[in-house]
Design a binder for these strands. Structure first.
Length: 495
RNA sequence: GGUCACGUGGCCGAGUGGCUAGGCAGUGGUCUGCAAAACCAUUUACAGCGGUUCGAAUCCGCUCGUGACCUCCA
């Protein structure tokens, strides 16, 4: 297996050969959702990108520990001293316990992840489950002199940190620029500098989510949870940390500062940031009101959608683009993706019926080397910073060979059994295991279709074309096609 | 305003110094009772201007345009 994986490291802004700290083990941490509302398709894109990364690392036989958190406290609506917690706010609005909100949206999130065929993480820790650890690291940062307490809140002293370390390494920012550009927000009197961020916040009397601490009742700051949970389960320095590009600053920058402040070590070797999903060129976000929910996309029940699109079509749509590029949503692009996915899925279906049999074909060196190259290129593409778009292109080319075999245009003996097996295995493992594109339609329809096909065959032999056309129409109305080939009759998903 | 990306054919999107990306749509062909599917072939490109180079979509500069981050955000 070709195993020279390169990853674009956001920290160095370069493509680097991936070297795990402790092979074959790999630690992968991805910032999960804040469960105060439904996840939208933009969120889904990020988690899907990391799903493929996780799947590919496993395919390369790395022993991955994939940690993706659930943020259930500490994420504030704004940065003011009396800033409301997102979950607490929603709980008040709906008159529910905060943990009911958390449970509801966490459940929804899991359903969506499952629907798009994302593998679950190995550990899914929550912020509220790690309050003790967050208090401990806050104490440590106070001890080390990187933090200060004011009125029951504890803040990280960014300017002091920047004197001996580089705050802004990840996002490429200079503290002077930040200082001159930071907008003045109301109610930040407790902070020495607007750049400082909260490690621990004092809870006002009406604040629901609160825990006792050495500084009084309060709750942890948002950035702290990821530092605590990533290092707890993956070590003080671990391999890969991922998230959406919009988390680069300030969230991930703060994580680095906290971790370095607490342990003296950089927390992460490779940072991976995925790009945004856009709608008409603009970032999909709840505040802009241009976001689709997964359910809306699938049902087509949204004013901007002309029709519904199946989860696997959407997955394919996203994988046709590199994770680091923006991807724009449009009905045209989605329709094209739906057809493309069906075509690939039909390949998966065809594969089940293909078995190598020695026939009268003559070994064809050119075809053989072509197939070998395509298979190798699948690995090379994925090794090149998880280039799924390029990998998909190889799969389409492999599919042509598979379809040629199926239709009798290419003979088995032209490629030989070894190459045949390689082709079949490569196609299947890249489609199913690595890209996570499974067959969407239930296989249980098979016996009924086969019975219809028997009648169809008989009608064709008897030249009863009226009945032939009728059967085609019946299947077509169920979005299935009949394929007449030299080698026989088969069915396929309509494209 | 600061920082950083991006601008590829009808649409979506890879590529990043010389070698066909791919998908969708279109056109021609093979096959077929007719189709469809499948396969084969094929048309429309690298925002503009200048520079480096034997050679640039790819590197450099400028111009124009779009976006992201700088505030919660995947």
């Amino acid at each position: 297996m070709i195993k020279d994986l390169k990853i674009h490291n956001s920290l160095t802004r370069k493509k680097e050969v991936f070297k795990p700290i402790n092979p074959p083990f790999v630690g992968l941490y991805v910032c999960g959702p804040t469960v105060y509302s439904d996840v939208h398709m933009g969120n889904v894109r990020t988690f899907m990108s990391f799903d493929v990364i996780n799947r590919y690392l496993r395919h390369l036989d790395y022993k991955v520990r994939y940690v993706r958190n659930i943020t259930d406290v500490g994420h504030l609506v704004n940065d003011a001293d009396d800033g409301e917690d997102k979950i607490g706010k929603k709980a008040k609005l709906e008159n529910l316990e905060p943990m009911e909100i958390v449970q509801r949206y966490a459940n929804g999130f899991h359903q969506v992840m499952d629907m798009f065929n994302n593998l679950p993480p190995d550990i899914e820790p929550s912020a509220t489950g790690h309050i003790v650890e967050q208090i401990e690291i806050t104490k440590k940062l106070l001890e080390n002199g990187w933090a200060y307490e004011k009125n029951g809140s504890v803040y990280f002293n960014v300017e002091k940190y920047n004197n001996s370390h580089e705050y802004g390494v990840l996002s490429g920012r200079k503290i002077e620029d930040l200082q001159s550009n930071t907008r003045t927000l109301d109610g930040q009197d407790d902070k020495k500098s607007p750049l400082d961020f909260a490690l621990w916040k004092r809870a006002s009397d009406e604040h629901i989510m609160r825990w006792p601490s050495p500084w009084g009742d309060g709750f942890p700051g948002w950035h702290l949870e990821c530092t605590v949970m990533s290092t707890k389960y993956l070590g003080e320095t671990f391999d890969i940390h991922g998230g959406g590009m919009d988390l680069k600053f300030p969230h991930h920058e703060c994580e680095i500062a906290q971790a370095v402040g607490a342990t003296g070590k950089p927390p992460v070797n490779y940072w991976i940031h995925t790009n945004m999903l856009t709608v008409n060129g603009q970032k999909m976000s709840k505040s802009l009101g241009n976001s689709f929910l997964p359910t809306e996309l699938i049902s087509g029940d949204h004013e901007m959608l002309e029709q519904g699109y199946s989860p696997m079509s959407v997955r394919f749509f996203m994988l046709q683009t590199h994770y680091s590029s923006t991807l724009d949503f449009s009905n045209e692009a989605l329709k094209a993706a739906q057809k493309g996915y069906r075509k690939l899925a039909n390949g998966l279906k065809v594969l089940k019926t293909l078995h190598f049999v020695a026939d009268d074909g003559v070994e064809n060196e050119q075809t053989i080397s072509q197939i070998n190259q395509l298979c190798d290129e699948c690995y090379r593409s994925m090794n090149d910073d998880f280039n799924t778009a390029k990998t998909v292109a190889q799969l389409f080319d492999l599919l042509k060979k598979i379809n040629s075999l199926h239709a009798g245009q290419l003979k088995y003996s032209e490629i030989g059994s070894a190459v045949f097996e390689k082709m079949v295995n490569t196609y299947r493992s890249f489609m199913v295991d690595i890209l996570g594109l499974k067959e969407e339609n239930p296989a249980e329809v098979d016996p009924i279709i086969n019975a219809l096909l028997d009648i169809y065959r008989k009608a064709k032999v008897e030249k009863n074309y009226a009945q032939v056309d009728e059967i085609r129409a019946i299947l077509k109305s169920n979005k299935l096609l009949i394929k007449d080939m030299k080698t026989g009759v088969d069915w396929a998903y309509e494209e």
